[in-house]
């Protein structure tokens, strides 16, 4: 999503959000992220206004004091930035790719099912299965920190069953152009 993204050319405009919109974003975040209102308050205090940064290709970045916290493509689910996920590692459910897949992740590829089902990968057990469309943090074999944020293309059970094709569509990964934007 953020290939060749450059803040100086790809940002169309910034604006403060209406308080009604802020409220609905807050509600949406509490729904998608596994954080409580208190934690969200730490991340984004109620009295502070989120700034909406409109970018090319229908990407919207939400910043607080210039720091990108969340982003959104069209009106898909709002996703947290990878740096935010690093700060609150449990805000998203985890999936894990094997070591062999890491380099493809860094090259900007979407993650294929076998990367999750092989010995080094991991998916939640059947009783904690995640449906398609869930925003997940992609972790890597042998690493502590999440390396990407993406959306499940298939449910985790289907990834195990089908075991081919794209399992997770990567929205942002370590080292991509969004990662490198620390302030807008």
């Amino acid at each position: 999503m953020f290939k060749k993204f450059s803040p100086s050319t790809d940002i169309a405009g910034q604006s403060a959000l209406k308080s009604s919109v802020q409220r609905s974003i807050r509600a949406q975040l509490l729904e998608t992220l596994s954080i409580d209102a208190e934690t969200l308050e730490q991340i984004w205090p109620k009295k502070e206004n989120l700034i909406q940064v409109k970018c090319r290709e229908h990407i919207t970045i939400f910043t607080l004091h210039g720091v990108p916290l969340f982003f959104q493509h069209f009106d898909d689910k709002i996703m947290p930035s990878l740096r935010l996920v690093h700060k609150y590692p449990s805000m998203l459910p985890h999936v894990k790719i094997d070591r062999g897949a890491i380099r493809y992740l860094f090259a900007g590829a979407h993650m294929m099912c076998p990367g999750f089902t092989s010995a080094g990968g991991a998916l939640p057990p059947a009783d904690a299965a995640l449906p398609a469309g869930t925003v997940v943090a992609v972790h890597c074999e042998g690493k502590e920190h999440a390396a990407a944020v993406g959306i499940l293309k298939l449910s985790t059970e289907d990834i195990k069953k089908v075991n081919k094709g794209v399992g997770v569509e990567i929205a942002t990964h370590l080292g991509d152009d969004f990662w490198n934007v620390q302030k807008i």
Binding site: I35, E38, T39, Q42, R83, H86, K87
Partner: peptide, 8 residues
């Protein structure tokens, strides 16, 4: 629930 942000 997590108490605070972890430092990275």
């Amino acid at each position: 629930p997590i108490a605070g942000p972890s430092t990275v």
